[in-house]
């Protein structure tokens, strides 16, 4: 693998579901995604935009309809089941729901140690020591190891999930809305923890989120998704300072600022169209305040308008 090659590069990735009664649901519909080692790359968008499905595609928990995924220089989709299984030690995940993602019948030690057991790492005693070290890294103590998930609060459970995600020293961690189910005062703890661990372990995050203020705080690069497509991709600073796609602008303007007297949130008219029957041309045109006739005919491709800033809009200018 060349030294400056990205850790993860997905091309033209798509997942189509056949729907009962005919029709095809295009959950993810032709997405390119490049994640550099050490970055936090955020996927943002509203529900149904395909960001969670994209995360599952990268993890190969869902098999893509088309496309390719290169990870650590290997073609992930070409791997046979056993080779893919071995690859999973480099590829990890933190789930949104700290309740559903931990087996209620297992102890914390069993949950955190499960990846180690699956990969047959170490003796029982070594695994135990490793689990205790992992718990310490996420702010839990060895005394917690014998407890069951239901004895913990949401934030503590998310720490358990994070410890499990780190057990095999992965390169890439797909964080699927890791703080959105948590109380406000707990979110900051978990965000800080994720950032600390990224530094100490040299992790790369693919950070799926809908909360733009969290993304603004934690991300290096951001891909904005709408109806199964990436509509804008840029370094964080550029995206928040000068969003170029009308959807990104609308998304940012819709967030209510926690400052009384700040400009009120601006609603975006209409609702997201059905992914069963997306609009022709640009998918955002039905809600777009600046759409022109051409938008209904040509499907805009991502164009690079500035260094690393790509936008899928006919009207966006450099």
């Amino acid at each position: 693998m060349p030294p400056d090659a990205p850790l993860l590069a997905a091309q033209n990735l798509a997942k189509h579901y056949k729907v009962r009664g005919g029709g095809v649901l295009r959950a993810v519909d032709g997405v390119d995604l490049t994640v550099r080692a050490g970055d936090t790359h955020a996927l943002v968008g509203e529900s149904g935009c395909g960001k969670t499905t994209l995360g599952r595609l990268i993890l190969r928990l869902v098999e893509p309809t088309t496309g390719s995924i290169r990870f650590r220089g290997e073609d992930l989709l070409a791997l046979k089941p056993e080779a893919m299984r071995r690859m999973r030690r480099h590829l990890s995940v933190i789930f949104q729901d700290p309740y559903g993602s931990l087996d209620p019948r297992m102890t914390v030690a069993e949950i955190v140690g499960e990846p180690l057991r699956i990969f047959g790492q170490g003796t029982r005693a070594e695994r135990r020591a490793r689990v205790e070290a992992l718990l310490a890294q996420v702010g839990l103590t060895p005394a917690h190891a014998t407890r069951h998930p239901h004895e913990f609060s949401g934030g503590q459970r998310q720490r358990i999930g994070i410890a499990r995600a780190l057990a095999l020293e992965p390169d890439l961690v797909v964080c699927d809305e890791p703080v959105s189910a948590l109380d406000v005062s707990i979110q900051a703890q978990i965000i800080n923890l994720l950032q600390d661990l990224q530094q100490s372990h040299g992790l790369t995050y693919l950070f799926v989120a809908h909360d733009l203020s969290v993304v603004r705080h934690i991300a290096d690069r951001v891909s904005v998704m709408y109806l199964g497509r990436v509509v804008e991709e840029a370094p964080k600073a550029a995206l928040f300072a000068a969003p170029r796609h009308p959807y990104t602008r609308a998304l940012l303007a819709a967030v209510p600022q926690p400052k009384p007297g700040a400009p009120p949130p601006v609603p975006l008219a209409g609702e997201v169209p059905s992914p069963l029957n997306p609009p022709s041309g640009c998918r955002f045109r039905t809600r777009c305040p600046v759409a022109v006739a051409r938008c209904a005919e040509d499907d805009p491709a991502l164009r690079e308008l500035a260094a690393g800033h790509r936008v899928a809009c006919h009207l966006a200018e450099a």
Binding site: V184, S185, S213, H217, V255, P258, K259
Partner: peptide, 19 residues
């Protein structure tokens, strides 16, 4: 502690402990 008001800081001043 909320990211929206903690602009520009690299580390959020989190509230320790749990609710």
């Amino acid at each position: 502690s909320i990211p929206a008001l903690a602009e520009g800081v690299s580390r959020l001043p989190a509230i320790p402990g749990t609710v």
